[in-house]
């Protein structure tokens, strides 16, 4: 179990860093620069500070899952802890 955990730790970031190196090698410098600037602006916008923090209440929501069935957060948290992960999409 511990061995598994050690292997898992930092695996994802390593994979993402490798993808980033590959991306930088394949991306024209002007495009890479546009993305770099946009990323910098995003950090400076203070968005991170405005996100929900530990101790704050999450507003309840209902969203459709991949087959169109509605999932209500409060129904999930009635019986379980919820791990909510936002991602941008797979494109």
């Amino acid at each position: 179990m511990n061995g598994d955990q050690t292997r898992l730790t930092f695996e994802l970031q390593k994979e993402l860093d490798a993808m980033r190196q590959e991306y930088l090698a394949l991306t024209p410098p002007d495009i890479a620069e546009t993305f770099r600037k946009a990323a910098e602006e995003l950090v400076l916008s203070g968005i991170e500070e405005r996100s929900l923090k530990v101790g704050q209440r999450v507003p309840d929501f209902v969203l459709p899952n991949a087959v169109g069935r509605d999932i209500r957060l409060s129904a999930v948290t009635a019986g379980n802890t919820a791990v909510i992960s936002f991602y941008r999409g797979a494109w």
Binding site: S51, L52, K53, V54, G55, Q56, R57, V58, D60, L73, S74, T77, A78, G79, N80, T81, A82, V83, I84, S85, F86, Y87, R88
Partner: peptide, 12 residues
């Protein structure tokens, strides 16, 4: 991208 652990009282 962000991840949150939310407990039964809907608190982060």
């Amino acid at each position: 991208p962000g991840s949150f652990i939310v407990d039964r009282s809907m608190t982060v």
